[in-house]
């Protein structure tokens, strides 16, 4: 079996794709995610790994897995569709922000400045994918006698330490998926991608013709959600 042994693990390949991309200036990267719906079994592990990675409080979710039923009983199947932020190339959530708190970075990731956001939630209404949620400051141990240590862990979104104990931002802010930018910058894959047991997720730099994602998104069986909105999503689905 020399062939099999030589064939590189897809995660290792993607990791290398990322490292190559990081060598380039930031505005030449184009991060995209490809989700193979045929492989997704709806286990929601990606959702939970994201919650753990970004220390998401109750009510905040970056990547739910949407389930829908196809057909009528007894001929039914289910479809599972993880829905991260699409990191739209024409993001409708950006122009509506009254204080420039959210913008598209040169590498295409739509970021939020937690210190700038006033929490008006206009961007939530403008996103066609419901990708943004509002952090009202809930904790999981509400109503229990003891405050749990994990509630107070610092999260490192956007490469900065956000301390929940201080009760400041991101409480009162709108939050969303950022393709784990803080991990990417360190050459790591987004948490959801590494967690998926079926390898339903691919991630990389679409500007690099040798990357896995560049090859995948040139296939004919690729779709994007709500193309008619003109948002130009950077999350692709293989169907």
């Amino acid at each position: 079996m020399p062939d099999l042994l030589e064939k590189q693990n897809v995660f290792v390949q993607m990791q290398e794709d990322i490292k190559r991309a990081l060598q380039k200036p930031v505005d030449e990267r184009r991060w995209v995610m490809v989700i193979d719906l045929r492989k997704c079994v709806g286990c929601s592990a990606c959702t939970i790994s994201c919650v753990a990675e970004n220390k998401l409080p109750p009510g905040v979710v970056y990547r739910p897995v949407l389930e829908s039923e196809i057909g009528t009983y007894p001929n039914v199947t289910r479809r599972f569709m993880p829905r991260p932020c699409m990191q739209c190339d024409e993001p409708p959530c950006v122009p509506v922000c009254p204080v420039h708190a959210t913008w598209k970075r040169p590498d295409g990731i739509v970021a939020i400045d937690y210190e700038q956001c006033i929490g008006c939630r206009y961007c939530i209404t403008a996103c066609p994918y419901s990708a943004r949620t509002f952090d009202t400051g809930h904790t999981y141990d509400e109503g229990t006698p003891e405050q749990m240590v994990y509630e107070l862990l610092t999260n490192f979104e956007y490469g900065q330490g956000w301390d929940r104990e201080s009760e400041g931002s991101p409480i009162g802010n709108v939050r969303k998926c950022h393709f784990c930018l803080h991990r990417l910058e360190e050459g790591e894959l987004p948490a959801c991608v590494t967690t998926c047991m079926g390898v339903a997720n691919y991630f990389g730099d679409a500007n690099d013709p040798d990357s896995i994602v560049a090859k995948l998104i040139s296939r004919p069986n690729v779709i994007r959600l709500k193309e008619e909105m003109g948002t130009e999503p950077k999350v692709y689905y293989l169907v």
């Binding site: 829905r83 066609p128 419901s130």
Partner: peptide
């Protein structure tokens, strides 16, 4: 719902 299934997804 903006996308089918959001209601029960999480």
């Amino acid at each position: 719902e903006e996308l089918e299934g959001l209601r029960t997804a999480f």
